[in-house]
Design a binder for these strands. Structure first.
Lengths: 145, 145
DNA sequence: ATAAACCCTGCACCCTACTCCAGAGTCAAT
DNA sequence: ATTGACTCTGGAGTAGGGTGCAGGGTTTAT
């Protein structure tokens, strides 16, 4: 290796270090790279991937968004709201507005679900044979959808 | 057919009617039955499934919960949260409490995501290039997850 | 009584999102 | 200079969640 002679660039990491720090496996990181969810990082002379640490938060974001029911496709869209010098601000804006509505709907549904469960828990000591399925009932009467 | 002679039981539906009314395909309904997410309905003499209309809201709930990032397994657990003579109150209660925490975490994450997007939209002048839209920054710095 | 529209089972297949090799090269420490 | 931990590519395999027939009965309208 020839580079890295004078200054030690301590802000680059191997894929293994990124994996350990992000809770995402090496294989998955490479998979996300193939799928375009994270940028192709520069390589060393020998071909090793060379990451800047900020890819870690991107990976955390992906993990979080997945657990909220977004597909990798949707996550890609969310992420691309930043990196598109081509598209104009209006496009991004309306995209973002759509996502906001989507998210608001999700929050709503979760709040109704939570309410149903809270009701179930507080009614618990009574222990009588309550309704067949409290969560379903709560969701039904409030007309989810 | 011999039954159904005197009284017309109008509150039963075929699988096709359920499918059309719930937005879930026939195949998927049968799949959910195999997986135990919905009860096996009674059958006609000829073997046709005979549903009561309330299965529709159960299917809607499943669809909703899926979009919120719950797996079919988790949905099964959510649906089974009720007091039955078999399970004791403590079990149900602690199960429900775990689900509540889970849901609260999801709501939190969604709210942070929404905030990031709202910030993006309000920071967006509505035209021009988007080289430095604040969305990813907002998401990264807030340390989602 | 015949066609169109349904429904049945069983099984193969598909998509998404990974996960796991094999075979080979690289790096750090001893 | 060798060992052991690490990385590379390419490709096959897996789990979860459906989807699509084929082959064959059933219902309903005409």
């Amino acid at each position: 290796m020839i580079s890295n002679s004078g200054v030690k660039a301590m802000n680059i990491m191997t894929i293994g270090q990124i994996a350990r720090n992000s809770g995402t496996s090496i294989e998955t990181i490479r998979f996300y790279e193939r799928e375009g969810l994270i940028e192709k990082p520069p390589r060393t002379e020998s071909g090793y991937r060379n990451y800047r640490p900020d890819v870690i938060s991107r990976l955390s974001f992906i993990r979080e968004a997945k657990s909220l029911g977004f597909s990798l496709m949707e996550i890609k869209e969310l992420l691309s709201l930043k990196f598109s010098p081509e598209t104009n601000c209006g496009d991004v804006r309306s995209q973002a507005e759509k996502k906001i509505l989507d998210i608001e709907h999700k929050i709503d549904s979760l709040q109704r679900m939570k309410q149903a469960l809270v009701k179930l828990v507080t009614a618990c000591p009574g222990s009588g044979p309550t309704s067949e399925c409290p969560i379903l009932e709560a969701m039904e009467t409030k007309k989810l959808g």
